[in-house]
Design a binder for these strands. Structure first.
Length: 830
RNA sequence: GGGCUCGUGGUCUAGGGGUUUAUGACGUUGCCUUGACAUGGCAAAGAUCGAGAGUUCGAUUCUCUCCGAGCCCA
């Protein structure tokens, strides 16, 4: 037997790592393969890679998603597109501020601002490096040399320029409005950043007294807010209380600087079955209060200050924190005999997503992006975007249906992009920087080219240089942007907006936004909002939304549940012969999971063909290995087997003397390849991978190889050509899923790497394509052929004879007449 | 409380108004060291497609209700 060109007996993790390291080590070669070359003349395909936020560990579900984004990027290259698969890192935000605060046991606002920013930057850099390593370990083919960081001047300048543009157009406004505010972290937050946590709270029934002496009972969980009460409301259909409407009632607690009574009115938002069915509306206890105040045109009270303490209006409670005030208010109500009862109940309270602190709604002057006026236009533009899977469009539209207020974009934090604006001494004019510059108004002066605008009308009054002296002492804005303000122009940035106008023209709308479904309402929504406001265009051609990675029981992975699985341990499982083991807390106690080898290729193969895009997926290393490592072994063996036969000099042109079984498998292969190409074009990873897997582990080895084995050993050129042509093209088509595996096989056996192929393999014999008469006929024989082989093998087994021994009485079906010579030899039919 | 998904052999999964046999994989069981492959090959068993009702000549597939899971929102 000739020695196979592929020397290794089987695919292994160490082999994978060797290939991988070589892959990334040669930078020139790497860039030739994967760097973005907009001048190549090919159609551009820009991927708006989600820039991961470095926080120490990278969630395995996210790593799995990134590997699928890589599959898409590679498959688009295979289809001949010029792909830009950028690598960005999202480094702005409150998380890194928290980390630094925790590490140094010191609150941000006790630092000098510049000093604190330095600390954040060095800390996040160490996390960033870990992510770069994992990205390579899972095989991402990003343009790493063009790495972008969202906290770098070039990125932030785009955010600031867009702000100035929208400010001039009037799409960004400042206003005193009720804001969701985190008093512990001292910052405003957006609707989308609020989550709800169940907590025990005390529901207090308080006795209020009308002007005519009638008593009524109102239930509230927030008695400290009585001082900010603007109205008492009942449901218009609630017959019990209609006689109260229009009456005035006494506030049961002492206040200062305000009327001591409020009027009873009607409002449909009251839940009559809740408590007594009477509701006090305060500025602001919750979102409903905001709505009622607005609808009834009431003037709100400012009851809580920026530190989360009660203000003057709270009278005796002034200066107390909200929680202390609540206790004190309950006590005072009790002493006055106004307390009817206190019931402990489970309630969901709104907290900030990042800090888990109970949030308050207070009046603040903040910056807003106007968004309610543009929803209809957005909806039209979204029609032009293809969603994968299609149903996910609905997630987005559902969220848009709930948009009722503008987007507050200013934050009172530090490690974020600064709001690029200065105010004149009389506060009537503002200074904004020119496009393309990055400024830090809290410490910089306006740069050359800055303009002076009227703060209200946005009229351009002239250049800053000329008007400087008339502005008095200017003050730089201290506030910064919500991080989504940065993230929502990632597609603009990677497509070349402002920086590469020539590329941008060809690359926008950005070809693909891949992301997880948990950030549809933030990242996706805000990005589309900006594309609409800035360019009046849909932001993307395709939006590809994957599900979440779950634990082996279908639950979300979280620190508190202790059911997380570390990504690196799965990718490294099997390296150096070390097995992997994981302790995971299941619903019925701890479970030990074990695997011998997984690695990136097996991991990617699993994610590619275990479930359809968009569904949540369960991550169980044991199953990944059992179900998919065998596939790699099988494919490797097929390639290894093929590699012992000489590779024909000309693989492009088929020899004329092909045997019927060669023509048959070529027709079948073409049918598979057609399906694969269509699937890659539709970003359908699942179907493409399934088709390849089925062919490569089924029909090809079990039937075709068995049929042509003897011909191959007899040095039959047609059989060798057919087999090699199929294996080579198979590796190309499969390279998006398993780049290192296919690279190794193709480079070793055929001297050309599958990862460099930039045209989907064409059919060698178009007359055998499945849609032709001959191709269709050959494909239709497959079932009969498989059935006959199966029956023959079974019959031999039944008879207790070896497969290479002769068997009698196995008539070849008429349909397979043309294969009779081959079948007779293969099965030793007599 | 509302919205959106989902519920298919032990496990995960495909499919989808009807071709007397519901896809594939893992697991299980049995057989096999056959000129690539025992980290393998071959084969078998295993599901009335969450429950109930309706539409229909016919439903696992459509509709409704219920039960269960998940996500999002209030």
């Amino acid at each position: 037997m000739p020695a196979p060109k592929l020397p290794e007996k089987r695919w292994s993790i160490d082999l994978e790592k060797t290939i991988q390291e070589a892959h990334y080590a040669d930078k020139a070669l790497y860039n030739r393969r994967y760097a973005f070359k907009p001048e190549s003349g090919k159609e551009l395909f820009v991927v708006d890679t989600p820039p991961p936020y470095p926080s120490g560990t990278w969630h395995i579900g996210a790593v799995a998603q990134y590997s699928m984004i890589d599959v898409i990027a590679r498959s688009q290259r295979l289809l001949g597109k010029e792909v830009f698969f950028p690598w960005g890192v999202d480094r702005n935000g409150i998380n890194i501020e928290f980390t630094v605060e925790k590490n140094t046991k010191r609150k941000m606002k006790t630092y000098d601002r510049a000093e604190f920013l330095n600390l954040c930057e060095t800390t996040i850099e160490t996390f960033t490096q870990a992510m770069r390593d994992t990205a390579r370990r899972v095989g991402l083919s990003c343009d790493f040399d063009r790495e972008y960081l969202t906290d770098a001047p070039d990125y932030r300048s785009v955010t600031q320029s867009i702000f100035v543009e929208l400010f001039k157009k009037g799409d960004i406004v400042e206003d005193l409005r009720p804001n969701i505010y985190d008093p512990v972290e001292g910052t405003t937050i957006a609707d989308a950043e609020v989550e709800r946590l169940p907590r025990k709270t005390k529901l207090v029934d308080v006795r209020w007294v009308c002007e005519d002496g009638e008593e009524l009972v109102i239930s509230t969980t927030r008695p400290e807010m009585i001082c900010a009460c603007g109205v008492v409301v009942v449901h218009p259909d609630d017959e019990r209380y209609q006689h109260l409407v229009g009456k005035s009632v006494q506030l049961p607690l002492e206040t200062a600087g305000r009327s001591t009574t409020v009027t009873v009115m009607q409002h449909p938002s009251v839940k009559s079955e809740f408590g007594s069915g009477i509701l006090m509306v305060c500025s602001f206890g919750d979102q409903n209060d905001v709505a009622v105040f607005r609808e009834l045109g009431l003037t709100p009270f400012q009851a809580i200050d920026l530190d989360g303490n009660m203000t003057e209006v709270a009278g005796p409670l002034q200066g107390l924190s909200v929680l202390e005030a609540r206790k004190q208010a309950t006590l005072m109500l009790e002493q006055q005999g106004a307390l009817v009862q206190v019931v402990e109940r489970e309630q969901e309270i709104p907290v900030s997503e990042r800090g888990k602190n109970p949030v308050e709604i207070i009046l603040l002057k903040e910056w807003y992006v106007r968004q309610t006026h543009i929803q209809d236009r957005m909806r039209e533009l979204i029609e032009d975007i293809t969603f994968h899977p299609p149903r996910n469009r609905q997630f987005l539209i559902d969220w848009m249906d709930n948009i009722s207020i503008d987007w507050p974009i200013s934050r009172r934090r530090w490690y974020h992009t600064e709001i690029p604006i200065w105010y004149s001494e009389d506060e009537c004019r503002v200074v904004v920087p020119p496009a393309g510059s990055y400024v830090q108004p809290w410490r910089d002066h306006p740069p050359a080219g800055s303009r002076v605008l009227d703060r209200n009308t946005r009229e351009d009054l002239g250049s800053f240089e000329e008007l400087k002296s008339s502005l008095g002492t200017i003050t730089g804005e201290e506030k910064v942007f919500d991080t989504w303000m940065d993230s929502s122009n990632s597609n603009l940035f990677v497509s070349g907006y402002l920086n590469h106008p020539d590329v941008f023209e060809r690359a926008f709308p950005t070809a693909l936004r891949p992301q997880g479904k948990e950030i549809v309402r933030t990242w996706l929504y805000y990005t589309l909002l900006k594309s609409t406001l800035v360019l009046d265009q849909p932001g993307f051609q395709h939006v590809w939304i994957d599900g979440l990675g779950m634990d082996p029981w279908g639950r979300k992975m979280s620190k508190s549940l202790g059911n997380g699985i570390d990504a690196d341990s799965v990718l490294e499982c099997g390296a150096g012969g070390r097995t992997g083991s994981w302790k995971v807390k299941g619903p019925d106690g701890s479970v030990s999971l074990r695997a011998n080898k997984i690695g990136s290729e097996c991991f990617r193969l699993w994610k590619a063909c275990d479930a359809q895009v968009g569904d949540d997926f369960q991550i169980n290393p044991e199953e990944i290995e059992k179900k998919y490592f065998g596939v790699l072994t099988k494919l490797f063996n097929v390639a290894r087997f093929a590699s012992q036969f000489e590779v024909p000099e000309n693989l492009e042109h088929a020899p004329s003397e092909l045997a019927p079984e060669d023509r048959w498998i070529l027709a079948e292969f073409q049918s598979t390849m057609d399906q694969v190409r269509k699937s890659w074009e539709n970003l359908d990873i699942y179907t493409a991978t399934q088709a390849l897997k089925t062919f490569g582990t089924g029909l090809l080895p079990s039937h075709y190889l068995e049929m042509v084995k003897s011909r191959l050993y007899d040095d039959d050129k047609a059989a060798a050509w057919t087999l090699h042509r199929i294996v080579r093209d198979f590796m190309s088509a499969f390279s998006p899923v398993c780049p290192f595996f296919t690279h190794h096989v193709s480079a070793t056996v055929y001297g050309a790497s599958a990862v460099e192929v930039d045209a989907f393999p064409a059919s060698p014999l178009p007359e055998l394509n499945p849609e032709t008469e001959e191709g269709g006929r050959l494909c239709s024989l497959s079932t009969t052929l498989q059935d006959f082989n199966g029956r023959t093998w079974a019959a031999k087994k039944e008879a207790g004879i070896f497969l290479n021994q002769p068997i009698e009485n196995m008539p070849i079906p008429e349909a397979l007449e043309e294969f009779s010579a081959t079948l007779t030899r293969m099965h030793q039919l007599v």
